[in-house]
Design a binder for these strands. Structure first.
Length: 206
DNA sequence: GTCAAGATTAGT
DNA sequence: CTAATCTTGACG
Protein backbone atom coordinates (compact mmCIF):
# COMPACT_ATOMS: atom_id res chain seq x y z
CA UNK A 1 0.00 0.00 0.00
CA UNK A 2 1.48 3.11 -1.11
CA UNK A 3 1.19 6.17 1.00
CA UNK A 4 1.75 8.63 -1.83
CA UNK A 5 -1.29 10.85 -2.38
CA UNK A 6 -2.84 9.90 -5.74
CA UNK A 7 -3.96 12.22 -8.49
CA UNK A 8 -7.59 11.73 -7.45
CA UNK A 9 -6.80 13.34 -4.09
CA UNK A 10 -5.90 16.58 -5.84
CA UNK A 11 -8.58 16.50 -8.51
CA UNK A 12 -11.24 18.45 -6.60
CA UNK A 13 -11.74 21.96 -5.29
CA UNK A 14 -8.80 23.54 -3.47
CA UNK A 15 -11.26 24.22 -0.65
CA UNK A 16 -11.70 20.48 -0.20
CA UNK A 17 -8.06 19.54 -0.66
CA UNK A 18 -6.64 22.18 1.69
CA UNK A 19 -8.01 20.91 5.02
CA UNK A 20 -7.37 17.30 3.99
CA UNK A 21 -3.68 18.09 3.52
CA UNK A 22 -3.27 18.89 7.22
CA UNK A 23 -1.49 15.99 8.88
CA UNK A 24 -0.09 14.72 5.57
CA UNK A 25 3.63 14.72 4.86
CA UNK A 26 5.79 16.51 2.35
CA UNK A 27 8.79 14.38 1.43
CA UNK A 28 11.89 15.72 -0.27
CA UNK A 29 14.50 13.38 -1.69
CA UNK A 30 17.90 15.05 -2.03
CA UNK A 31 21.33 13.52 -2.43
CA UNK A 32 19.89 10.14 -1.53
CA UNK A 33 18.51 11.47 1.73
CA UNK A 34 14.91 11.98 2.74
CA UNK A 35 13.69 15.12 4.42
CA UNK A 36 10.09 15.30 5.49
CA UNK A 37 7.61 17.41 7.38
CA UNK A 38 4.03 17.17 8.57
CA UNK A 39 1.75 19.79 7.07
CA UNK A 40 0.29 22.04 9.76
CA UNK A 41 -0.86 25.08 7.76
CA UNK A 42 -2.18 25.66 4.21
CA UNK A 43 -4.14 28.18 2.16
CA UNK A 44 -6.55 27.55 -0.72
CA UNK A 45 -6.45 29.65 -3.90
CA UNK A 46 -9.10 29.37 -6.58
CA UNK A 47 -9.28 30.63 -10.14
CA UNK A 48 -11.29 33.37 -11.83
CA UNK A 49 -13.47 33.93 -8.74
CA UNK A 50 -10.56 34.58 -6.37
CA UNK A 51 -8.97 38.02 -6.69
CA UNK A 52 -6.05 36.99 -4.47
CA UNK A 53 -5.10 34.07 -6.71
CA UNK A 54 -2.36 34.12 -9.32
CA UNK A 55 -4.93 32.43 -11.54
CA UNK A 56 -7.42 35.31 -11.20
CA UNK A 57 -6.66 36.92 -14.56
CA UNK A 58 -6.27 33.71 -16.49
CA UNK A 59 -3.15 31.77 -17.43
CA UNK A 60 0.18 33.63 -17.66
CA UNK A 61 3.68 32.27 -18.06
CA UNK A 62 3.99 32.06 -14.29
CA UNK A 63 0.57 30.67 -13.46
CA UNK A 64 0.01 28.31 -16.36
CA UNK A 65 0.84 25.27 -14.25
CA UNK A 66 -2.14 26.13 -12.04
CA UNK A 67 -4.36 25.57 -15.05
CA UNK A 68 -2.84 22.21 -15.84
CA UNK A 69 -3.78 18.82 -14.37
CA UNK A 70 -4.02 18.41 -10.59
CA UNK A 71 -1.21 16.83 -8.61
CA UNK A 72 1.64 19.00 -9.90
CA UNK A 73 3.79 21.42 -7.94
CA UNK A 74 3.47 25.15 -8.51
CA UNK A 75 6.60 26.85 -7.20
CA UNK A 76 7.22 30.57 -7.60
CA UNK A 77 9.66 33.18 -6.30
CA UNK A 78 8.23 35.95 -4.16
CA UNK A 79 9.88 39.28 -3.29
CA UNK A 80 12.89 38.14 -5.28
CA UNK A 81 13.98 36.14 -2.25
CA UNK A 82 11.68 33.36 -1.15
CA UNK A 83 10.13 30.40 -2.90
CA UNK A 84 6.58 29.21 -2.20
CA UNK A 85 5.29 25.65 -2.74
CA UNK A 86 1.77 24.96 -3.94
CA UNK A 87 -0.03 21.83 -5.12
CA UNK A 88 -2.28 22.18 -8.16
CA UNK A 89 -5.88 21.14 -7.56
CA UNK A 90 -9.20 20.86 -9.33
CA UNK A 91 -10.13 20.31 -12.92
CA UNK A 92 -7.76 21.17 -15.70
CA UNK A 93 -8.39 24.69 -16.95
CA UNK A 94 -9.89 25.99 -13.69
CA UNK A 95 -6.74 27.28 -12.04
CA UNK A 96 -6.75 26.20 -8.39
CA UNK A 97 -3.95 25.41 -5.93
CA UNK A 98 -3.15 25.03 -2.26
CA UNK A 99 -0.20 26.88 -0.76
CA UNK A 100 1.77 24.86 1.81
CA UNK A 101 2.50 27.39 4.54
CA UNK A 102 4.09 25.49 7.42
CA UNK A 103 5.54 22.11 8.34
CA UNK A 104 6.43 20.30 11.51
CA UNK A 105 9.81 18.62 10.80
CA UNK A 106 9.61 14.81 10.85
CA UNK A 107 12.88 13.59 9.35
CA UNK A 108 16.11 15.43 8.62
CA UNK A 109 15.68 18.47 10.85
CA UNK A 110 19.47 18.55 11.30
CA UNK A 111 19.98 18.78 7.57
CA UNK A 112 17.32 21.46 7.22
CA UNK A 113 19.24 23.48 9.78
CA UNK A 114 22.50 23.23 7.89
CA UNK A 115 23.99 26.62 7.22
CA UNK A 116 21.48 28.40 9.37
CA UNK A 117 23.28 28.58 12.67
CA UNK A 118 21.65 27.31 15.79
CA UNK A 119 18.04 27.79 14.95
CA UNK A 120 15.24 26.43 17.07
CA UNK A 121 13.52 23.53 15.30
CA UNK A 122 10.19 25.23 15.73
CA UNK A 123 11.31 28.11 13.51
CA UNK A 124 12.69 25.94 10.75
CA UNK A 125 9.65 25.58 8.54
CA UNK A 126 6.95 27.78 10.05
CA UNK A 127 6.36 29.86 6.94
CA UNK A 128 6.01 29.27 3.18
CA UNK A 129 9.42 30.70 2.31
CA UNK A 130 11.20 29.03 5.19
CA UNK A 131 9.86 25.56 4.45
CA UNK A 132 11.11 25.81 0.88
CA UNK A 133 14.54 26.80 2.08
CA UNK A 134 14.53 23.96 4.62
CA UNK A 135 13.64 21.38 1.97
CA UNK A 136 15.73 22.81 -0.83
CA UNK A 137 12.73 23.62 -2.99
CA UNK A 138 13.11 26.13 -5.81
CA UNK A 139 11.71 26.79 -9.27
CA UNK A 140 13.44 23.78 -10.75
CA UNK A 141 10.61 21.83 -9.10
CA UNK A 142 7.90 23.94 -10.70
CA UNK A 143 5.52 21.69 -12.63
CA UNK A 144 6.99 18.61 -10.95
CA UNK A 145 4.63 15.61 -10.83
CA UNK A 146 3.88 15.04 -7.15
CA UNK A 147 2.36 11.62 -7.75
CA UNK A 148 5.51 10.12 -9.28
CA UNK A 149 7.34 9.50 -5.99
CA UNK A 150 10.61 11.14 -7.03
CA UNK A 151 12.40 14.22 -5.69
CA UNK A 152 9.29 15.67 -4.05
CA UNK A 153 5.96 14.15 -3.15
CA UNK A 154 3.19 14.11 -0.56
CA UNK A 155 2.00 11.12 1.41
CA UNK A 156 -0.50 10.29 4.11
CA UNK A 157 0.58 10.92 7.69
CA UNK A 158 0.77 8.60 10.69
CA UNK A 159 -1.04 10.83 13.08
CA UNK A 160 -4.48 12.38 12.66
CA UNK A 161 -4.57 16.18 12.70
CA UNK A 162 -5.42 18.11 15.86
CA UNK A 163 -8.31 20.59 15.72
CA UNK A 164 -8.52 22.35 12.41
CA UNK A 165 -9.09 26.12 12.54
CA UNK A 166 -9.67 28.59 9.73
CA UNK A 167 -8.78 32.26 9.28
CA UNK A 168 -8.45 34.71 6.41
CA UNK A 169 -5.36 34.22 4.26
CA UNK A 170 -2.14 35.97 5.16
CA UNK A 171 -0.56 38.76 3.16
CA UNK A 172 -3.03 38.72 0.28
CA UNK A 173 -4.36 41.63 -1.82
CA UNK A 174 -7.55 41.74 -3.81
CA UNK A 175 -11.20 42.64 -3.30
CA UNK A 176 -13.12 42.45 -0.05
CA UNK A 177 -14.24 38.88 -0.69
CA UNK A 178 -10.67 37.72 -1.18
CA UNK A 179 -9.46 39.48 1.96
CA UNK A 180 -12.17 38.04 4.17
CA UNK A 181 -12.54 34.51 2.79
CA UNK A 182 -11.58 32.05 5.57
CA UNK A 183 -9.40 29.92 3.33
CA UNK A 184 -6.40 29.47 5.55
CA UNK A 185 -6.50 26.15 7.43
CA UNK A 186 -4.16 25.30 10.30
CA UNK A 187 -3.72 23.05 13.30
CA UNK A 188 -4.61 25.23 16.24
CA UNK A 189 -1.95 25.27 18.92
CA UNK A 190 0.70 23.49 16.87
CA UNK A 191 4.15 24.89 17.64
CA UNK A 192 5.07 25.05 13.96
CA UNK A 193 2.36 27.23 12.42
CA UNK A 194 3.49 30.59 11.08
CA UNK A 195 3.45 33.55 13.47
CA UNK A 196 0.51 35.85 12.76
CA UNK A 197 -2.17 37.74 14.71
CA UNK A 198 -4.75 35.61 12.88
CA UNK A 199 -3.75 32.72 15.13
CA UNK A 200 -5.56 34.45 17.97
CA UNK A 201 -8.90 34.92 16.25
CA UNK A 202 -9.27 31.88 14.04
CA UNK A 203 -12.42 29.80 14.33
CA UNK A 204 -12.91 26.08 14.70
CA UNK A 205 -13.51 24.39 11.37
CA UNK A 206 -13.60 20.73 12.41
C1' DG B 1 10.72 48.86 -23.10
C1' DT B 2 9.45 50.44 -18.58
C1' DC B 3 7.98 50.01 -13.93
C1' DA B 4 5.41 49.05 -9.73
C1' DA B 5 4.15 45.38 -6.76
C1' DG B 6 4.57 41.12 -4.62
C1' DA B 7 0.55 34.41 -1.38
C1' DT B 8 7.81 36.86 2.93
C1' DT B 9 11.30 37.22 6.31
C1' DA B 10 14.91 38.98 9.35
C1' DG B 11 16.63 42.75 11.42
C1' DT B 12 16.44 47.68 13.63
C1' DC C 1 8.76 49.58 10.72
C1' DT C 2 11.75 48.73 6.87
C1' DA C 3 15.22 46.62 3.74
C1' DA C 4 16.32 42.91 0.86
C1' DT C 5 16.16 41.46 -4.11
C1' DC C 6 14.41 40.16 -8.69
C1' DT C 7 10.66 38.20 -11.46
C1' DT C 8 6.38 38.94 -13.32
C1' DG C 9 2.75 41.04 -15.69
C1' DA C 10 0.33 45.19 -16.97
C1' DC C 11 0.62 48.91 -19.95
C1' DG C 12 2.26 51.79 -23.76
Amino acid sequence: MTRILPQSFYARSALGVAPDLLGCRVVREMDGQHLSGRIVEVEAYLGAEDAASHAYRGPTSRSQVMFGPAGYAYVYLIYGIHHCLNVVTGEEGQGGAVLIRALEPVFGAEIMQKGRGQEDVRNLSNGPGKLCQALGIDKTLNAHDLTAGTELWLETGNRPPESIYTSPRIGVRGDEAALSAPWRFYLQGNAHISPTPFNQNGSLWK
